[in-house]
């Protein structure tokens, strides 16, 4: 594989819902090992962008490439490509009827057709990375905390050995005291070289983890750059307001 091509490339992506424009020509690239964080007020299409990237939401137009393979091409086997895109949802979406361990192995055994025994080994290593002790492996989602659920959800995505991880506001549904453990895990993965695209409202986390910040407003990326640069010298009015509002909220 050519190492010069970006892991993810999005070109002129557009999406509207019943006449309302959500994404109005988004372009972005994520290179191997990079972590980019998408910021912006609520309801500007950040989540829609992530869902379009793995085609859970079909874009109206524009192109998306994963490691050079065009996802938006109707001839591409999207189910196969989705295995390479780890997706972490705001509300976890663990499979309620499966144990923690099975939540992680099911993609391996049923989708990748890996034998059970080997799948358990891969799952064990993924669960270790997200600090889920084996005492929780046989618990069901309803029996563990929100932070644990989200970490299991990350392990489920990780076990598929994705080329990129997409996080859609991974801590927004969590009680404040549980946010830290999840952000810590995401940060560790990112530092270890996991290519990541993260939508979040956790500004301090974004500053720590991101190689680049992307601000979305009115369906477009209005500002992007290294965190320290963007924060020191925001150009777009929305970005100025957003940063100011978050600082005032934090006090």
């Amino acid at each position: 594989m050519n190492s010069n091509i970006p892991v993810l490339k999005v070109e002129n992506l557009k999406k509207s819902y019943s006449g309302r424009i959500i994404l109005d020509g988004v372009n972005l690239e994520v290179d191997k090992g990079e972590t980019k964080v998408i910021l912006g007020p609520s309801g500007v299409g950040k989540s829609t962008l992530l869902r379009c990237i793995n085609m859970l939401t079909l874009p109206d137009s524009g192109k998306i490439w994963l490691e050079g393979v065009e996802l938006t091409n109707p001839n591409t086997d999207i189910n196969k490509m989705r295995q390479k895109i780890g997706f972490v949802f705001q509300d976890f979406n663990l499979f309620h009827h499966l144990t923690v361990l099975k939540n992680v192995t099911i993609g391996l055994t049923k989708v990748k057709k890996i034998p059970e025994e080997e799948a358990i080994k891969i799952a064990a290593s993924a669960l270790e990375k997200v600090h889920i002790p084996n005492t929780l492996w046989n618990k069901y989602p309803a029996q563990i905390s929100g932070g644990e659920k989200q970490r299991v959800a990350i392990a489920r995505a990780l076990a598929m050995k994705p080329s990129i991880m997409l996080y859609d506001e991974p801590t927004s549904a969590l009680d404040p005291q549980l946010v830290g453990e999840v952000l810590q895990v995401i940060k560790e993965l990112s530092t270890a070289g996991m290519t990541s695209l993260i939508v979040t409202h956790e500004l301090h986390f974004a500053l720590e983890v991101a190689n680049e910040l992307l601000f979305i407003y009115n369906g477009k990326i209005v500002e992007q750059g290294p965190p320290e640069e963007v924060f020191a010298n925001p150009k777009h009015d929305m970005v100025k307001k957003y940063i100011a509002s978050i600082y005032s909220r934090k006090g």
Binding site: N54, N79, F87, D91, N93, V111, R156
Partner: peptide
């Protein structure tokens, strides 16, 4: 919940 379906598809099912 639709999330179950989305999660299943997201791992390539």
């Amino acid at each position: 919940d639709i999330g179950q379906s989305l999660a299943a598809r997201s791992i390539g099912m």
